[in-house]
Design a protein around this nucleic acid. Structure first.
Lengths: 198, 198
DNA sequence: AATAGCGCATGACAACTGTCATGCTGGAAT
DNA sequence: ATTCCAGCATGACAGTTGTCATGCGCTATT
């Protein structure tokens, strides 16, 4: 079984990879960031993608969305640090099969992988409960703009990155600020991140 | 060789423990938080403590300080996520033998453990450079203003919190932006936080 | 004692940011 | 088919932010 492991922290990545390789039929490929993972997914077929959410480049959710759009059969298991509410709904929408906290033993990961490969859904119950609360009010474009703003990019940089006019970029940020009852873009980014919507 | 592994994220902890146990002469005990680790250190002798810094209960640095005070022969290797400059100095002061980033492969960890047991010091060069090289260029007021800005507070809020005029607050932020080669206050906060200056 | 330098403080001005009115499009409901 | 609405897109305008020149007080150096 071909597994792609995407995780940016090298120690965690190599440790997990070594352990998974102990399983006789697991063939593990490693990717240190989201962009590398995306390239590998485009080049060759994998049975399963095991990915962190927060990574430089593309996030685990974006990778899952890509697989869904391309109608690839690759299953997805997400592992992440915090149980941010928004992620779970977006992950389920992106067809993710498993969603685990890093705050769980490795045995649970292996068992989750096997269940997901058998076509089941495995979502950590703590995360599931969290996700029933508030819904993410941001549109995709608003989220993209906010993420760039949170990284310190200027409005003109955001505009050219998203191929829109500066006014439009400012409008997205303004909408996000208003939806989140924030004082400015920084405040909005802080709130969104805290709720797991970034 | 008796090793105590203190790390709060279960998946990382169990993965590292499983890998270390593959080494024939490593006998690994796990602790999920700082307080548990401290109790174990008090109850029985260990040859080496392998610890994260940021944990609930006692931090890895505090555990190292305890071992130093009790004049125990237990060696210490610290693994951590971010290269905050301050930590390195404090770790060295606490007699820590090794200091690695989680952003390093597991092989490096095993080799570091062996070198530390042989009496050597292994400090990740990136961390060392960080701690010796760059000095925090921010003044206290600049840091305060930047911290408030990073939390989404407006200039007028920052000004009244610090009992200064708005122009002054803007000036602190401007100085911080310029000292850090940042594009705006958000970027400056991001850079400062990343370097451990916030 | 004079000077140099740093941190603190301020306001004027230019540049950037947030808001709002407006228009367009495509999908859902009637 | 028509209406409604959410999302996307834009520019004008007001409000906020960043820069700079300027000045004050303190400490260290000459």
């Amino acid at each position: 079984m071909k597994i792609l492991l995407a995780e940016d922290q090298a120690m965690v990545r190599t440790a997990l990879a070594s352990l998974l390789r102990l399983e006789a039929d697991f063939q593990v490929t490693e990717a240190a960031d989201g962009s590398t993972a995306l390239k590998l997914l485009q080049q060759q077929p994998f049975d399963l993608l095991l990915s962190d959410i927060e990574m430089p480049g593309n996030s685990g959710i974006e990778l899952a969305q890509y697989l869904q759009q391309q109608k690839l059969a690759t299953k997805v298991v997400i592992i992440t640090t915090f149980g941010r509410a928004g992620y779970v709904k977006r992950a389920i929408d992106a067809g993710v099969g498993g969603f685990l906290l890093k705050d769980a033993p490795v045995e649970q990961l292996v068992s989750a992988i096997n269940q997901v490969m058998a076509g089941k859904r495995v979502i950590d119950s703590e995360l599931l409960l969290n996700s029933l609360g508030e819904q993410d009010p941001l549109t995709d474009k608003e989220r993209q703009a906010l993420r760039l703003a949170a990284d310190g990019h200027s409005t003109s940089e955001i505009a050219s990155t998203l191929y829109i006019a500066e006014g439009t970029a400012r409008n997205y940020l303004s909408e996000a600020i208003s939806k989140l009852n924030a004082a400015n873009r920084i405040d909005a980014a802080r709130i969104a991140r805290q709720k797991g919507w970034l």
